[in-house]
Write a protein that binds this DNA or RNA. Structure first.
Length: 457
RNA sequence: GUGGGGGUAGCUCAGUCGGUUAGAGCAUCAGAUUGUGGUUCUGAGGGUCGUGGGUUCGAGCCCCAUUCUCCACCCCA
């Protein structure tokens, strides 16, 4: 019986060309991670629901994919008081597992669970898919890969610097022009503190973030509508309008925040990071962006966001410092910092800017044509062994189809060379080597053939 | 959760004022060509027009509902 061949909203199949391109991205990222001394781990696709809930803010909780309990999942539900059963209440009874929403929280759980095996500071990277029950749109998927690098168990700002170097090197290697935006949650806390609205930091930063998009007036309207007092909004004006060079912004902020200990601490951190970056030959430009907020609740210090310069798609990399994520799982005083590369968005940007090189798209380098002759097939098989021993990918067409069909196959797979051994070649003991780009063909020996293909690399 | 566009062949899309048998390009297969492809030519297969109802002598087209999808907001990689 025929069934609709569709896949769930926001998910995608990846065909060979797409996979080759994706692997190219993953390979670059992985190599850089390893170069800086990070070690790989993986965690399960699903976590206990309680591990994930409450870590990402209210919006985040809503976007977590829950997994229905196995067996008689309704047995815990009391249907008598149906009226009082809300979907959140019922969720806790019928679901105790969920698909991971990001890699950072599962990592924190991993660190606590394996704390006795881990030597701190622990540098790990993790490249795996995550799932969000968001409404899909351009650059937004329900299943996508994150490539996380984190250092946990070290307060040093050298880690922040190292992450900036990694970001710089990854995008350098990908040939992508980006801008790194930097901010610090402590500064945001300081701002909220001096205007006496500490509980509203998130609302304030989200509103300030829209300044460039909607203008000062609308930002103020939004602030008031979120219940922030008119006096506080008034005090915020110089902060919203803050501009100039990084140094100017910092010195202005220093005077605005001079009564806030936490705010000044944040500025000190930013200053130190900026100072360090002058020593690391950075290719990417860095911007101190006070409007950068980041929705995730657990950030406490530096926050990062990376945007592509020539392509509009939202952030392609983001992260920050979290002082107490492991505390929730029972391990206190362990601070971590990390960033996450959004492989799928990076893919979209590279594709949009036409930055994928053709040479990552072919796999087989030479194909032997099949004439259906048993003796020749055996000859081809032994040739293939020799060729593959040299690390050259080669294949024999498995059917004795018409030449046209076999050549079409080679063309579609972008195989650059075809080897032909028919009766004539067999008699003469040669191989007809055809260059599929130029159309030229010459009789060669196996040795010569291997030479040609090896020198081509 | 809020708002807008769309659904016609495997893919991308035309389809006039509501009018006979719903089209094109690409892709696939076959032939021109029994040892030479990608560029040529010829032909073929492929459709419950998202689904359900309504208006009409007649609906791919108009109306209602529903579903899926894309885009924007919110938020985010």
């Amino acid at each position: 019986m025929a069934v609709n061949t569709t896949i769930p909203k926001g998910t995608r199949d990846f065909s060979p060309i797409e996979m080759l391109r994706r692997n190219y991205i993953f390979d670059i990222i992985r190599k850089v991670f390893q170069k800086y001394g990070f070690m790989p781990i993986e965690t399960p696709a699903m976590e206990n629901l309680t591990t994930l809930l409450g870590k990402y803010g209210e919006e985040g909780d809503r976007l977590i994919f829950k997994i229905l309990n196995s067996g008689d999942f309704m047995s815990n539900v009391n249907c008598d008081d149906k009226e009082s059963v809300t979907s959140t209440k019922i969720t806790n009874k019928i679901s105790e597992k969920a698909l991971r929403y990001d890699l950072t929280v599962p990592f924190a759980r991993y660190v606590v669970q394996h704390q006795n095996e881990i030597t701190f500071p622990f540098k790990r990277y993790q490249i795996q898919p995550v799932w969000r029950a968001d409404r899909p749109q351009k650059g937004r998927y329900r299943e996508f890969y994150q490539c996380d690098v984190d250092v946990i168990g070290s307060n040093s700002l050298l880690n922040e610097i190292e992450l900036i170097q990694i970001i710089d090197e990854v995008f350098q290697n990908l040939g992508l022009a980006v801008i790194i935006k930097l901010n610090n949650r402590k500064i945001l806390s300081g701002i909220a503190e001096i205007i006496n609205e500490s509980s509203k930091i998130i609302d304030i930063t989200v509103a300030i973030d829209k300044f460039e998009k909607i203008g000062l007036e609308k930002v103020n309207e939004e602030l008031l509508s979120k219940g922030i007092s008119p006096e506080a909004v008034k005090k915020l004006q110089p902060i919203i309008l803050l501009s100039g060079s990084i140094e100017e912004k910092i010195s202005n902020l220093k005077s605005v925040l001079n009564s806030s200990e936490i705010g000044l601490k944040g500025i000190e951190e930013i200053e130190k990071i900026i100072d360090y970056t002058k020593k690391i030959e950075l290719q990417t430009c860095i911007d101190f962006d006070l409007t950068l907020a980041r929705g995730l609740n657990y950030y406490t210090g530096a926050i990062f966001e990376v945007k592509a310069k020539d392509h509009e798609i939202g952030s392609i990399c983001g992260g920050g410092r979290y002082d107490d994520l492991t505390g929730i799982f029972g391990l206190k005083n362990v601070s971590g910092v990390g960033v996450s590369f959004g492989a799928d968005r990076i893919y979209d940007v590279l594709l949009g800017l036409n930055k994928f090189n053709d040479n990552i798209e072919n796999s087989t380098e030479i194909m032997f044509v099949n004439f259906g002759d048993l003796e020749i097939e055996k000859l081809c098989l032994s040739h293939l062994v020799s060729i593959r021993k040299q690390g050259i990918s080669a294949e024999l067409y498995p059917e004795s189809h018409k030449m046209k069909k076999q050549f079409d196959y080679a063309n579609n797979k972008k195989i650059p060379f075809v080897a032909i051994i028919g009766e004539n070649e067999k008699q003469k003991g040669v191989i007809m080597l055809k260059n599929m780009t130029t159309g030229e063909q010459n009789e060669t020996s196996l040795k010569e053939l291997i030479n040609i293909l090896t020198n081509r690399k």
